[in-house]
């Protein structure tokens, strides 16, 4: 297979970026998109050209490191897929493929396809945890958790923190990211006690970090590689309302 690539290249955060055109050949359908870039990079290095800088680590869709906009979609056009999971057989032979970094004011480009995502850590620091210390705790079975609640929590906890929701959101909002954490912890008895303060502090931190607000476009849900649903955002809104009323009272 052969492809025509348009790849965003940018030397540094302040440097202007633009698309560069590359032709790649001898691509086998089993290759992943990132392996195709690896191959292209090998060729570039041999020519003495700086290779395309991009991030990835586990390459099996769980660490959340990789993240690019492929043909206009965060993590590519396939649903429930991370960038590293994209296989070349999903493209037409000879197709032009556009690759650019995640775009958001809170995700400044560091180099080529790498963006800075520290904002997501800051949002978790604002309360995305239970305040359980390391030490002796009640037996894990002492507090029963209804299976449905556990499954629901697990659905939300599957978030890999890749930031695709932010990249896809026309407002660069991190609502799905926040909502997933609120839903994960708030559904479990261990996380419930802090739910109100968590909902307030995490959404405030989200705004402080420069993420936008939610306009219910639901683009986040469409690109989420782990299939996290916008219904968790409604849940977050309820938690916020409850917390605000409680604060008022």
């Amino acid at each position: 297979m052969r492809f025509h690539l348009k790849v965003w290249r940018q030397e540094g955060p302040e440097a202007p970026g633009r698309f560069f055109d590359y032709d790649v050949d001898d691509i086998i359908p089993e290759m992943s998109l990132l392996e195709m870039l690896d191959k292209l990079n090998e060729e570039l290095i041999k020519k003495g050209t700086p290779p395309i800088t991009f991030e990835s680590d586990c390459r099996e869709g769980i660490c959340g490191t990789c993240g690019m906009v492929v043909n206009g979609s965060a993590h590519g056009p396939q649903p429930k897929t991370t960038t590293c999971e994209i296989r070349m057989r999903h493209f037409q032979d000879g197709e032009a493929i556009t690759i650019e970094p995640f775009r958001a004011a809170v995700f400044p480009v560091q180099k080529d396809l790498i963006v800075e995502r520290a904002g997501l850590d800051k949002v978790i620091q604002a309360g995305g945890y239970t305040s359980a210390y390391t030490g002796t705790h009640a037996d894990a079975n002492a507090i029963l958790v209804p299976k449905d609640d556990q499954e629901y929590a697990m659905d939300a906890a599957a978030c890999i923190g890749c930031g695709a929701c932010v990249a896809a959101c026309p407002n660069s909002s991190a609502m799905l990211f926040v909502a997933a954490k609120i839903a994960h912890l708030g559904t479990l008895p261990q996380g419930k006690p802090e739910e109100a303060s968590r909902a307030l502090s995490m959404t405030e931190a989200m705004q402080e970090e420069g993420f936008g607000a939610c306009s219910n476009h639901f683009e986040c849900q469409a690109v989420c590689p782990k299939g996290i649903r916008v219904e968790t955002i409604a849940r977050l809104n309820r938690a916020f309302l409850k917390a605000s009323l409680k604060r008022l009272a």
Partner: peptide
């Protein structure tokens, strides 16, 4: 055993049975 208790306290959603037990 302590590890499991610790993780559950942190909100790790281990698989449960219909009884609510792990």
């Amino acid at each position: 055993g302590n590890i499991i208790d610790q993780c559950v306290a942190q909100g790790v959603p281990f698989q449960r049975e219909y009884s609510g037990e792990l």
